Simulated assay, not measured.
Amino acid sequence: MRMIVCSCNIISKQEIEEVIIELLQDDPWRLIVPGVVYHAMNARGKCCGCFPGVVDIIVATTQKFHEEQQTPSAEIICFMDKLKKHHDACETARMIARHRQLKTRKQA
């Protein structure tokens, strides 16, 4: 069964995983974010509601990729920590933007 992650672009989890693996094969330490994945698929985020799920897929796929490549655990942990910090910063920025948007609507 094909699990659709992005309903705006009709993109499946498997398609996202395949793109991530291709990107990692080109550069195993590249920081991959949803925009990079979508660009590689000639798509763009529309509502961006799927981005948190795409980040989860990126994290899991990246970790699995490095485990299969037998990358030393210390290197994987360091990289995953950097990825998590980036994700957390994006989530914080998104929450702040959402709060400002709601505040603006209430004032209007």
Rank of each mutant, 00 (worst) to 15 (best):
G53D: 10
L23V: 00
H39Y: 01
H39E: 10
T71A: 03
P34A: 03
K106G: 04
R2Q: 11
A74D: 09
C8Q: 07
G35L: 14
E75T: 01
G45C: 10
C6D: 14
L31G: 14
A60P: 01
C47P: 03
D27C: 08
Q107F: 10
M80F: 08
Q107V: 03
M41Q: 00
K46M: 13
D88G: 03
V54R: 04
C47N: 10
A89L: 15
R100Q: 15
G35T: 12
I77P: 00
A74V: 08
T92P: 02
N42W: 01
C6V: 00
F65M: 11
R98K: 13
V55R: 15
H87T: 01
V59N: 09
G53P: 11
H86S: 09
A97L: 15
I57T: 10
T104F: 15
R2G: 00
M3S: 10
I20N: 07
H66S: 05
G53C: 11
I10S: 11
H66G: 03
D27H: 07
A40T: 05
V5E: 00
V55F: 15
A89E: 12
Q101L: 15
R30N: 10
I58G: 05
I76Q: 07
S12M: 05
V19W: 01
H99V: 13
R2A: 09
H87F: 15
K103P: 00
T71C: 02
E68Y: 14
G53T: 12
I58H: 05
K84F: 05
E15F: 00
S7A: 07
A89N: 14
A108T: 09
H86G: 05
G53A: 10
C78T: 08
F51I: 10
A89C: 12
V37F: 10
Q70K: 15
R98F: 12
P34I: 06
R2N: 13
S12I: 03
Y38D: 02
K13C: 09
V33Y: 07
F51A: 05
L83A: 08
H99G: 06
K106S: 12
Q25D: 14
R105G: 08
C47R: 12
M95E: 03
D56G: 13
P34E: 01
I58E: 04
T71V: 10
R94Y: 01
E91Y: 09
L31R: 13
T92A: 13
M3P: 04
H86F: 07
Q70H: 15
N9Y: 04
K103T: 04
C6L: 11
T71M: 09
K64I: 12
P52S: 07
V36G: 05
M1Y: 01
A108H: 12
P34W: 04
Q25R: 13
I11R: 01
C50F: 09
K103F: 02
K64C: 09
V59L: 12
N42A: 01
H99N: 11
Q107W: 10
L23W: 03
H39W: 04
V33D: 07
I11N: 03
M95S: 00
